[in-house]
Design a protein around this nucleic acid. Sequence first.
DNA 1: CTGCATCCCCGCCGATACTG
DNA 2: CAGTATCGGCGGGGATGCAG
Lengths: 135, 135
Amino acid sequence: MNTAPGIIKGEQVLMIAGVPMAMDNCPVRDVLNTVSGKWSSLLLLALLDGPLRFSQLRRTVPDISQRMLTQTLKDLQRDGYITRTVYPTQPPSVEYALTQMGHSFLDVFQKLVTWSVQTQNTILAARTDYDKAAE
Amino acid sequence: MNTAPGIIKGEQVLMIAGVPMAMDNCPVRDVLNTVSGKWSSLLLLALLDGPLRFSQLRRTVPDISQRMLTQTLKDLQRDGYITRTVYPTQPPSVEYALTQMGHSFLDVFQKLVTWSVQTQNTILAARTDYDKAAE
DNA sequence: CTGCATCCCCGCCGATACTG
DNA sequence: CAGTATCGGCGGGGATGCAG
């Protein structure tokens, strides 16, 4: 029985507000884990206008380190957000591109971006209010 | 000039695909920082059906520790997602509730939840494919 | 050009004990 | 009931150097 609104306990799954939220097998946690990293969303947005090569991505996101660029791209590829194509040139060139899934993710993600931009001032105000109230 | 699609460099702001993405003053990074924590989204969803008290939240999200419940609620309050109301009963009771901003966030967030649920199988398949290809 | 390997720091988070 | 304080592990991410 429910001791609080929206919860189902005593089963394998933890549901909150109709959403599966158990630590394992929680779709949105899975997405957030890979996408909320420091660089993931930037790289996906950078690919919105078309495929880019490794060095082009480096220039597009200037502050990323080589290490994190490699690793983040690998994570995004592993989960199906992007593809990785090697061209056997000399020296080799590697092209990264959004998959259809990557595009559909950005459709949703950009709604969050828009909300964030519109709400930024509200958040900043709340934050300074809170800090001021705490002296 | 743009050395790659969607970037504007040499200014104070880094824009990618029309979105401000500098490390400082990036709205969506700000939102992701507070919301992508292990417990934030669960607590916000738990409050969707109405205000809850501290102990009720604890029961709704069984695995959360006292420490993280306190801290996460504080972070969410600081940024304006929720309110905290103390009732001078004996012993004291404290009620947490979504703000209007919290509700509007959940409207957007639930789109991401829906996408995640619909895409879960695609992601899992991509992941096993990738791991299998890597032997 | 496109990576991989190593070292290291720091912040998130869990466990536990204590307070008004 | 609703917190606070302290300790410690673990993992994300930066810096640097090496390799195909």
